[in-house]
Amino acid sequence: MSARETILARLRQRAPDAPPPPPLPPVRSTALLEQPPFASRLAAFTAILAKLGTTVEHVADVATAARRTTELLAEHGARSLASSDHALVAAVTAQLPTDIERLAHDAPRDDLLRAEAGLSSAQWAVAETGTLVLVSADERHRLCTLLPDLHIAVVPASRLVATLGCAFARLQPDAAPAGQTITFVTGPSRTADIELTLVVGVHGPKALRVLVIDD
């Protein structure tokens, strides 16, 4: 018997008088709740990320986003920027000063490893939890959101949903091409492994900045 058969056979060894399995309850999702207006969603998103040290700015257009990105890069002393292949990201990077080194999503791994900042969009943002939802089938952002010290995300305002449940309701991994990776990002990387002292930026980004762009 294969290991698969052995394990499944073990699982089928139920006592003949075993009670029937309890029923599977219907899905419980916050997506079904009434959704607050955008202003409330943005306020909640901003407030919860502020607690994690992540700033959220609401900007009117790509030009403003590019200006703020430039300033954020300067603030963090970042000279190189790894970008995803999202159209909005491309629009922003096109307006950045030329002295910033650009690294595309498919740049050599070693170059991406030394990038000082990363720029991505997000497929969804969750107001309730301050979470960015990154779907790899829609954007190549696995590396630029992970490797650099600074991660800047430019998120279309229309993508800001109220709750985690709203995001789950919009994600359909079975409908997507195989090989899809969804990453939820809530604030910067952190640890409390040494005497429970919070240290921000242990393996992933040390700082996360979010620009919500009207669309």
Binding site: T131, D174, G179, I182, F184, G204
Partner: peptide, 15 residues
């Protein structure tokens, strides 16, 4: 919520 959740649906072979 913790900082990261990775939801992996097969290897990321690309499209």
């Amino acid at each position: 919520l913790t900082s990261y959740q990775s939801l992996l649906t097969g290897p990321d072979v690309g499209v």
